[in-house]
Design a binder for these strands. Structure first.
Lengths: 348, 348
DNA sequence: ATGAAAGCGCTAACAC
DNA sequence: GTGTTAGCGCTTTCAT
C-alpha cells in the first residue's frame, strides 16, 4: 500500500505553537504540563491542555532532556536479547520501570568487552539516568580498567551504575545467590545418589559462572564428594558453546559421567542436544542439570533440573534502587532455589 | 561495594570545553567530528580530536538530535519481548540497524491496542526516524482509526512507518507469506495422511493469524479436505492462551482430532503442554504443528513441525527500507517454507 | 577554512 | 500567577 498523506512534510507542532493557540506565554504552557513548581490557574491550564489536544501536540523528549539536563532512561546492557534469560530480564525490567515512570533502553553487547566499552561510551552520550550491566564480567584486567573508568565518569556526572551478576566491577551490585544455589544443587544431587559429575563451566573469564562452579563443588564436598579439575570443562557461554564442547568430549570421559551440570540452562540444553546426538538418553544414560530456570524449560521434556533465579524480584530491586535508592547502597543478593525435575531422577 | 568517586558530581564535558582546550571555535570543533559539510584543516582537526580524547568527551546525543532535528533511532513495537519470536526479531533488527548506523529502541505493547496508541504518541515525541510495528493488528475500528491518525502524523513530520505482519494499517508493510506457508503446510499434512484437524486460531481480532487459518484451510481444500468452522478454536494469542483453550476442550472434540495446528509456535507448545496434561502422547495420539520456527524449537522433543519464517531477511528488508528506501515503496512479502519434523509423522 | 551568531524545543530562574 | 529572558549542548547558516 502507498503511504497516505505523503509529500508535504510538515513541521511538528511545538510548545510555542500550543502557547500561541492558547493565548499564553510559552512558560505558562510548559507549566501547564509539568504541573509541579509554580501552579498555573486552572482555567488557563485547561485552555492550554485543550489547545495541545486540538493540535495533537506531543512534547519533544530530546529537547526536554537537554533543557532539564537529565533523562528518564535506564540503559540495560545484555549479551544477547534473543537469549531467554536476558529477554526475560529485559521484560521484567521494562515492566518495573514503567510503573516507576522510567524507560529502559536495551543494548546488546554481543559478549564482547570491546563492544561493551564502546556501548558504555554511547550510553554516556545519551545521559541515561542509570546503566545496568547484566551478564557476566570478564577477566581482562586492562579492558575492565578502561570500562571501569568509563563507568566512573557516568557516576561523576550524576548517573547510576548497577551491575547484575558480575563481580568484576566495583559498583552497586544486585545478584542472585549463585554460589548458594549451586551448592544446594550439588548437595541435592548427591542426595539423589549421583557421584560421577561433569561440569560445563562456560568461559573461565566470566566471573559469575565461577561462583556457580565453586558453589557446586562445595555442595558436593558437603556430601564428601570431590570434583576433580579435569571434570570441569570450559566452553563458550552459550547453547552452541555447550553443544560443541560435549561433541568434542572423549567417549571415555562421557563413559565416566552420570550427570552433567551446566552453569546455565541454555548451556544445559545445548548439552542435551549434543548428548542425544551421541546416542545418550536423558536421564536414563546421563542426567543433566542447569541454572536459571528460563522460560524455555516449560517446553522441555524431560523437565530440566535447575536453580531458579527470581528475575522479577531482581528487576524490582534494580529499578527500585535507581528510582528511590541512595546512590552508594551496599549490594544485595537474592535467594535462589533448587528445582528438581525429571532430568535428574533418584538413582536406583 | 561502595560507589567509587562518589560525592562531587561534575558537569559533563561539552563540545565548547573541547573547543576551548583545542583553541578553536565551537563550530570548528563540531565540524572536526561530523566531518561532512565544510572540511576542516587536518592539523586543527587532530588538535580537536586529541583534546576530545584527553577530556573524555562524548557528544550529547539528545542535544545533537534537537539541533539536527532528527534522530537515528528506529522504534520497534513488539507485543512481548520475552516471547521468542519477538526477541529474535529484536535481535535481528538490532544487528541490522547497527551496520546501518541506526539504533533500535524496543517498546513493549503488551498486546493492548490502547497501550499501543499511547506508545506511538510517546515515540512521536522521541522523533524516531522510523517506527516499526511488529505483531498482529486488531480489528477494533475506532482505535485503529486513532492509531492510524497518530501514525499519519509521524509520516507528516518526516518519520517512517513500517508494519510487519499486520494488515490493519495502510502503511509500508513487510510480511511473511503467511497464507502461502500455511497453505503448503496444510497440503503437506494432508499428503502425510492427516484428515481430522483442529486449529488453534488465536484471537479473531488479530489480522495476521487470519491469513494463516485461511491459508491452512486452502491447503486442505487443495487436497479435498474441508475444515469446518467449529474445528477452528479461538484463544488468546499466547502459550497460556493455547494451553487454556486446549484444557477447556471437550473430550469428544479431542477424540475427533488427529492433528492440532496452532497459528504460531508458542501456541503450539502451549497446546502440547495441555495435551500431555490430559494424557495424550505427541505424536502417537495427537500430532501438532505450529508456525514461525522459533529458536525454542531446537530444544523441543519431538521436533515440532512448523513453517519457517526468515526473520533475519525481514529485519534486513525493514532496516534497508528505513536506511535507503524510498518512502512510499510497495510492500514486500518474504517466502516461508514448511519444516516437517517428528511431531507430524506420516500416518500408517 | 574559520569564527560569530542564530536557532533547535524546551525548562527554569528572574522579575513583575 | 504570568511573562520575559536566559540558558541546555549542539548544528548550521552567514560573514569573513
Amino acid at each position: 500500500m502507498p503511504q497516505p498523506s505523503s509529500g508535504d512534510r510538515v513541521r511538528p507542532v511545538t510548545l510555542s505553537d500550543v502557547a500561541r493557540a492558547a493565548g499564553v506565554s510559552q512558560s505558562t504552557a510548559s507549566r501547564a504540563f509539568n504541573g509541579s513548581a509554580r501552579r498555573v490557574d486552572e482555567a488557563l491550564k485547561q485552555r492550554v491542555l485543550e489547545a495541545a489536544a486540538r493540535l495533537n501536540y506531543v512534547p519533544n523528549t530530546q529537547a526536554q532532556a537537554v533543557a532539564r539536563g537529565r533523562t528518564t532512561t535506564i540503559a540495560l546492557l545484555v549479551s544477547d536479547i534473543a537469549d531467554a534469560y536476558f529477554s526475560s530480564m529485559a521484560a521484567a525490567m521494562m515492566a518495573e520501570a514503567e510503573s516507576a515512570g522510567l524507560r529502559v533502553s536495551v543494548i546488546v553487547t554481543e559478549r564482547r568487552i570491546e563492544r561493551e566499552l564502546e556501548v558504555v561510551r554511547e550510553v554516556r552520550g545519551q545521559h541515561a539516568r542509570a546503566i545496568v550491566l547484566a551478564g557476566s564480567g570478564y577477566r581482562d584486567a586492562a579492558l575492565t580498567g578502561t570500562l571501569r573508568a568509563e563507568l566512573d565518569m557516568v557516576i561523576e556526572s550524576g548517573g547510576r551504575v548497577v551491575t547484575v551478576s558480575r563481580g568484576d566491577l566495583p559498583f552497586e551490585s544486585v545478584d542472585f545467590d549463585n554460589a548458594g544455589g549451586a551448592r544446594q544443587l550439588g548437595a541435592s544431587l548427591a542426595r539423589l545418589g549421583y557421584r560421577d559429575f561433569l561440569v560445563l563451566a562456560g568461559e573461565p573469564e566470566l566471573v559469575a559462572t565461577q561462583d556457580r562452579v565453586a558453589g557446586f563443588r562445595a555442595g558436593l564436598a558437603d556430601a564428601g564428594i570431590e570434583l576433580d579439575d579435569d571434570r570441569v570443562i570450559p566452553s563458550a557461554f552459550s547453547w552452541e558453546g555447550a553443544r560443541d564442547a560435549v561433541q568434542r568430549l572423549g567417549d571415555d570421559v562421557l563413559a565416566g559421567t552420570r550427570l552433567v551440570f551446566a552453569v546455565n540452562d541454555e548451556m544445559a540444553l545445548g548439552a542435551v542436544a549434543a548428548l542425544r546426538g551421541r546416542g545418550f538418553r536423558i536421564p536414563e544414560d546421563i542426567s543433566v542439570a542447569g541454572f536459571d530456570d528460563i522460560r524455555t524449560l516449560r517446553d522441555v521434556v524431560p523437565g530440566l533440573t535447575t536453580v531458579h533465579v527470581p528475575i522479577a524480584d531482581l528487576a524490582a530491586e534494580v529499578v527500585g534502587r535507581i528510582a528511590h535508592g541512595v546512590p552508594g547502597a551496599p549490594g544485595s543478593i537474592l535467594p535462589t532455589s533448587v528445582v528438581l525435575r525429571d532430568s535428574t531422577p533418584r538413582l536406583n
